[in-house]
């Protein structure tokens, strides 16, 4: 079991870090530039660029947007790998050998996804770093102003909210695609279709749950 879990961590968590880092860094930069370009009123302090970047990255961009990316990256991988095992009768083979296949296949993925908040923490950090680099080197804001901005009106509850939903999204990312793979029928062609359906459903559920949590916790 330990080996299985380590393998899933490697495939699902470590394997996703590259794309998550890339996207976070550049989107963070774009958010900073967009905010700067829209701040035409000279009375508003430039530090607001940093404030806006921090808020959007921590509250929505890292937890929600990256989770949608993960539904594509990790989710499709989960559905197609379990689905392939289904259509090639590997799941039947497990069951004949007295193995509880759901447990054997899904549990390690759930455990791996308990590390998902670390991925999102990295995404938050890189997003803000990207914002700082784009803001300062693009000449929109001074480094000091940016640093002041990211410390303005810091509400710890927001971080709690962000990580709570990250954790829930992680569990959704581990289970919904597994379910689609496990219960699929058909052949290789259907594995592809199941991955697509699983991506759509995972995204829809994440977006809906995001709405509900936000309504409950922040309003």
């Amino acid at each position: 079991m330990k080996q299985l879990i380590l393998k899933e961590i490697d495939d699902l968590i470590i394997g996703s870090l590259g794309i998550v880092a890339f996207i976070s860094f550049f989107i963070g930069g774009v958010v900073a530039i967009q905010t700067a370009l829209n701040l035409t009123n000279p009375l508003i302090p430039k530090s607001l660029i940093a404030f806006a970047t921090r808020q959007s990255v921590i509250l929505e961009f890292a937890p929600t947007f990256i989770s949608i990316i993960m539904a594509g990256r990790a989710g499709s991988y989960i559905t197609s790998s379990i689905g392939t095992m289904r259509v090639t009768e590997q799941i039947d083979a497990l069951e004949v050998m007295g193995v509880n296949a759901i447990n054997y296949l899904v549990f390690p993925k759930i455990v791996a996804f308990t590390l998902y908040p670390f991925v999102i923490a990295i995404s938050m950090f890189l997003g803000i770093l990207g914002g700082w680099l784009a803001g300062v080197y693009g000449g929109f804001v001074g480094s000091d102003q940016f640093i002041t901005g990211i410390q303005t009106d810091f509400i710890p509850f927001h971080v709690f909210y962000a990580f709570l939903k990250t954790f829930i999204f992680g569990m959704l990312l581990a289970t919904i695609p597994s379910f689609h793979g496990f219960y699929m029928k058909g052949g290789a062609l259907e594995v592809g279709k199941a991955s697509t359906t699983s991506f759509v459903w995972t995204s829809v559920v994440i977006i809906t749950v995001n709405y509900i949590i936000t309504q409950l916790l922040l309003s």
Partner: peptide
């Protein structure tokens, strides 16, 4: 007491030959 050979062999892709063959012993 039952052994099964599936149509497409149904070997576990993620395991090598030795691990595949030893799997029932590990489980049972």
């Amino acid at each position: 007491e039952i052994g099964m050979v599936f149509q497409g062999s149904a070997l576990f892709d993620s395991m090598n030959v030795e691990e595949n063959v030893g799997f029932p012993l590990k489980m049972f």
